[in-house]
């Protein structure tokens, strides 16, 4: 039984109607967005169901997931906090911002916090170069921009999200606190 089709029959029909009837493969990306919005990542089952709907192989669907940066094949942090460090942002301090933010959160780019709240990622141009440093937050399949950031501003926002998303306070490593423990959590 195709769970995706069962759960979103109308939405899927609307997606398929956008493309010529003999070109169902074109629906692959919208369907992946739909599946990812449900689970926060594209599961093995979703791959198979999308292959079934579009009439292509599971491998082909998986290759699309692998190619595009915003599709994920594994569950990670509830918030994917994505910081652009491309040239224009770097010229406005984005690299230093990311380094400091990572130190405060005690995770490195590509890692997820132990409470499962945040995955930090270093990403490519977000088309907001005049408002750097900035990050986009991907929660499920929703993407929001947060511009003109400082580590303190970002931590404040994360604090409010932590309460809302996982119901526990945000875990941060204050640099002052860690100083006494020489050689502590810093690599």
């Amino acid at each position: 039984m195709n769970q995706l089709l069962k759960k979103f029959p109308e939405e899927i029909n609307r997606i398929l109607a956008r493309y010529p009837i003999d070109r169902k493969q074109a629906a692959v990306m919208p369907l992946l967005h739909l599946a990812q919005g449900e689970e926060g990542f594209v599961s093995r089952t979703a791959l198979q169901e999308i292959a079934e709907i579009t009439g292509i192989s599971t491998t082909e669907v998986a290759s699309v997931v692998g190619f595009y940066t915003l599709f994920h094949d594994a569950p990670e942090g509830k918030i994917r906090l994505q910081v652009c460090t491309d040239v224009a942002c770097d010229l406005r301090g984005a690299t230093e911002y990311l380094t400091e933010l990572c130190e405060k959160l005690g995770i490195k780019p590509g890692e997820t916090s132990t409470d499962g709240l945040i995955t930090i990622e270093e990403v490519k141009c977000l088309a907001a170069c005049d408002k750097a440093p900035l990050f986009q937050a991907q929660i499920g399949d929703e993407v929001d921009y947060h511009e003109n950031q400082t580590p303190a501003r970002t931590i404040d926002w994360l604090r409010s999200m932590s309460a809302a998303l996982i119901g526990t306070p945000l875990k941060t490593i204050s640099l002052e606190e860690t100083k006494p423990e020489e050689g502590g959590s810093h690599e």
């Binding site: 956008r18 493309y19 074109a26 990306m29 919208p30 992946l32 967005h33 190619f67 595009y68 940066t69 915003l70 599709f71 990403v123 490519k124 141009c125």
Partner: peptide, 9 residues
């Protein structure tokens, strides 16, 4: 119609 990409320059 709209079509949404997924992060590829």
């Amino acid at each position: 119609h709209t079509h949404l990409g997924a992060g590829a320059y």
